[in-house]
């Protein structure tokens, strides 16, 4: 059943031919370097078409370690792309609400609230004020200085910073924003966001939060059980 659902996704069709379990993908994978993670195993499970194992995978942390760098793609001797297979699995895991069953999966809500909302509201994935120094200590004092002076700083390179016209980080006008929002509605992007919200809200309540509120989002964004290492 799950395998049939997955084959509706062209990335699965493109990403999975026949895997010979050689492990080349795992050898080059930056996630395997860092996490208890093995893309070869993911491909193997999907190829087995075993519903029980696929369901377990859809509910596990393991599904969320991949960084989608696609380093595995040109190296696989059989023309598979584990990264594509993972994209298809992640989409299905969210459609079925299974993503909330794992710590790393639950982070999808934080990403949707931050990046997703920013795309719909501003037309950019990120803008300087979103990368708040308090949440990004690793960005260091230069970023802190630039963001603290953002108008004086960015307008030096882009006179239309947060204003009308062309150029870097101009304000994207309301017509363009409306078009992006309509595209999300027409193509199922908004429904997908709603699915993430609904499943997260259910899970948050189960976990003792008052629904998928800010404290739950913060929890998913910052909590690390420490059980992911290689």
């Amino acid at each position: 059943m799950y395998f049939e659902l997955l084959t509706k996704d062209i990335r699965l069709r493109e990403g999975l031919k026949a895997c010979m379990n050689c492990g080349v993908c795992t050898g080059v994978c930056p996630s395997a370097e860092f996490y208890d993670y093995d893309p070869r195993q993911i491909v193997c499970i999907v190829q087995s078409r075993d519903d029980e194992q696929i369901e377990q995978l859809l509910k596990s942390d393991r599904l969320w370690y991949c960084g989608e760098c696609m380093s595995c793609r040109p190296r696989c001797p059989r023309g598979n792309t584990p990264g594509y297979i993972i994209q298809a699995l992640r989409t299905l895991s969210q459609q079925l609400g299974f993503f909330t069953e794992s710590e790393k999966g639950r982070q999808q809500l934080a990403i949707k609230r931050v990046i997703g909302h920013h795309i719909l509201e501003k037309g950019y994935c990120i803008t300087p004020r979103l990368v708040a120094p308090a949440m990004h200590p690793e960005q260091g004092p230069v970023w802190d200085w630039a963001v603290g002076n953002d108008t004086d700083f960015w307008t030096k390179f882009s006179p239309n910073y947060r204003g009308a016209g062309a150029g870097a980080l101009r304000e994207i006008d309301s017509d363009a924003i409306a078009e992006i929002n309509r595209i999300f509605e027409v193509t199922g992007g908004k429904d997908f966001f709603d699915t993430i919200e609904a499943a997260s809200d259910r899970k948050a309540r189960q976990m003792g939060f008052d629904g998928a509120d800010e404290s739950y989002v913060n929890h998913t964004y910052t909590f690390n059980s420490g059980n992911h290492g290689a």
């Binding site: 969210q94 999808q108 949707k112 990046i115 997703g116 795309i119 037309g123 062309a166 006008d173 595209i183």
Partner: peptide, 29 residues
């Protein structure tokens, strides 16, 4: 340099919150 163009949604697509059909239509725009 066109003031009308927007994010391609790439960061959203590769964090798996934006479906492929949505990204395709944004790129088509």
């Amino acid at each position: 340099d066109d003031p009308r163009h927007t994010s391609c949604t790439g960061i959203g697509y590769h964090t798996d919150i934006v479906p492929l059909d949505t990204t395709m239509a944004v790129v088509a725009r």
